[in-house]
């Protein structure tokens, strides 16, 4: 699992999709609903239980320990984790927009 910035992933168990924003400081497994995420181009296997919880469109999820940051680009069931640690929502910043 090569977690490079800009790489795209999807949940093996739901419609949820993700973009990697910041790479983790050490290698590990990114999972959704407890199962390793799939590369965006991969086929989702049929069946499998619907996972608990939800990933929300446009939210950023982070692992404080490694600095890993993931953007949810399509909403779906399943909570993200990295090496078993649940990721947490990164607080939105309020910047004065210039555009």
């Amino acid at each position: 699992m090569k977690l490079t910035p800009g790489s795209r992933w999807k949940c093996a168990l739901s419609e949820a999709e993700f973009v990697l924003v910041r790479a983790p400081s050490m290698e590990g497994e990114l999972a959704c609903g407890g199962l390793a995420v799939l590369a965006a181009a991969a086929e989702r296997p049929a069946g499998g239980a619907k996972p608990e919880g939800e990933s929300l469109l446009g939210k950023r999820y982070t692992d404080v320990d490694t600095g890993l940051e993931v953007l949810c680009s399509k909403a779906g069931k399943g909570i993200l984790s990295f090496d078993g640690r649940a990721l947490t929502i990164k607080e939105a910043k309020r910047l004065p927009s210039s555009d």
């Binding site: 469109l57 446009g58 950023r60 939105a92 910043k93 309020r94 910047l95 927009s97 210039s98 555009d99």
Partner: peptide, 23 residues
């Protein structure tokens, strides 16, 4: 693409605009 997406992701929030906003 990585420069522009980094700029947007770091400077604005997804759907951060109120319903009536227009630029």
């Amino acid at each position: 693409h990585r420069h522009l997406t980094a700029y947007v992701l770091s400077s604005v929030d997804f759907l951060g605009a109120a319903d009536d906003e227009a630029a």
